[in-house]
Nucleic acid binder design. Structure first.
Lengths: 250, 250
DNA sequence: CGGCTCTTTGAATCACATCAAGGCCCGTGG
DNA sequence: CCACGGGCCTTGATGTGATTCAAAGAGCCG
């Protein structure tokens, strides 16, 4: 019931699944970042490239055996966990060039679920092989350490957001985060489409969809953003920064 | 002022700062976990052992150059960051055998502050050397990956706590976390002393000290815990588990 | 058209924050 | 010895931002 595939987006080129790391246009963001030509081939050899994933399909399950981490090649993925009483907490959204699944390393069991928010492609990187290759390629090892560290930093930013911030601040920070990740990929930082539903946004930010809706209303009234459905335009970037930080500066 | 050292806990041996990893009674929790005898010596060689840190003293500063990660040998450390407008968010508490500072790896700059909550001792582990050694000792590399991954998992649990949980759930989960970490160190899981202030607890859990106080009052009325100042006794462990999870089960 | 889902808007409610006061502990100094 | 003051914690009264509940609007499709 969920495959409303009317919107086949501008992903045509990304759907060339068998492309190698060397030719992938994300290789300046992804794991190959730190490697020179021949080393990329070594990495390339262990990667199961470009598995296509349908909207709503799981990439891994909480509690499932951990064998690989994943790089998003196209589309968007969310990770979330389910607590005892069935509540879902979205822990993160992952865009092309970003790595997920690192929470499974510690116990060899995935601690969260990952599902595609739209038709996506992911590269599967067997962790055992990655570890072995890392031992041989110091720059790969240190880059991988960095990527894990970045995940920690981002989680801690979310912790601050959830612990201290008002609804406006949370939503503004959320938009800014997506904006900056878009510009890393050379996409517009002021006009973009949100690939996730209001429910997921609300869940991620610890707010209800009604609150999200009201916040959007207020931000639109101030002409800071224009949001139609999933299409976002940031009109006053500076004002949005202010909202995200100090919230009426007092 | 706070050195009510009537309870001089079994810490005497920890204050022998110059002990080696081989003789450290935490080596079943800490980095050496995965190593055999001679490899521990290699690790030992790069570690600056047992720096003493006074209460309130910084171990590293947000924005400062990252060179090392740290293992707590004795005492307790909190990490926190300060947002633009001066609000503090406590991101974690670290007990003996636990590693901190991994958020600095990604940008070579510490993303948070670390200060000792009481007189403590920490081992400094130069990250460059650790990386080099990891490349040589596969089990060290994989263990370090695991420790970083655990940090991610724990951060994500806190995210769920802050995003979804009531005050009672948060505090109950907090006590249970400390309880389980105590038992990892072979300390009592039902009777212990909280090394951090109410302010820090509240900050960590995204609650005010008044709310913490009221929650404690309610949990005591139900005879689930007994808390005097910083001394905690968990009387009904199962009930506390229930509070942490389902909160009136509906 | 009707049926579906998602979003918006309004009104009532609630959990926690805020504000304010008082208690307890302990150290200091008369 | 007691009086005083400062931390820190507790308790009560009041306020408020976000949730909840309810209903209506908007887009989509069979």
């Amino acid at each position: 019931m969920e495959q409303q595939l009317r919107l086949v987006r501008e992903t045509s080129c990304h759907h060339n699944f068998k492309i190698s790391c060397n030719n992938c246009r994300l290789n300046t963001l992804c794991l190959p970042l730190s490697l020179n030509g021949s080393d990329v081939d070594d990495l390339d050899a262990i990667i199961q490239r470009g598995r296509p994933v349908q909207k709503g399909e799981h990439i891994f399950y909480e509690g499932g055996t951990f064998t690989s981490i994943y790089a998003v090649r196209s589309g968007t993925v969310k990770t979330f966990s389910i607590s005892e009483d069935g509540r879902e907490q979205v822990a993160g959204f992952y865009f092309p060039g970003e790595l997920l699944g690192m929470d499974g390393i510690s116990r060899n069991i995935h601690q969260s679920n990952a599902v595609a928010l739209e038709t996506s492609a992911v590269c599967e990187i067997p962790f055992k092989s990655l570890g072995e290759l890392s031992a041989k390629l110091p720059s790969l090892q240190s880059h991988f350490f960095q990527l894990m560290s970045r995940e920690i930093t981002e989680d801690q930013q979310l912790i601050t957001l959830l612990g201290k911030s008002s609804a406006e601040e949370r939503f503004a920070a959320f938009l800014l985060s997506i904006s900056s990740r878009n510009s890393r990929r050379n996409l517009s930082s002021t006009r973009f489409r949100l690939p996730m539903s209001r429910v997921d946004i609300g869940n991620y930010l610890g707010l209800t969809i009604e609150t999200i809706s009201r916040v959007i209303g207020r931000l639109q009234k101030q002409e800071i953003v224009v949001i139609n459905n999933k299409e976002v335009e940031i009109v006053q970037y500076d004002s949005l920064l202010k909202v995200a930080r100090v919230q009426w500066s007092k």
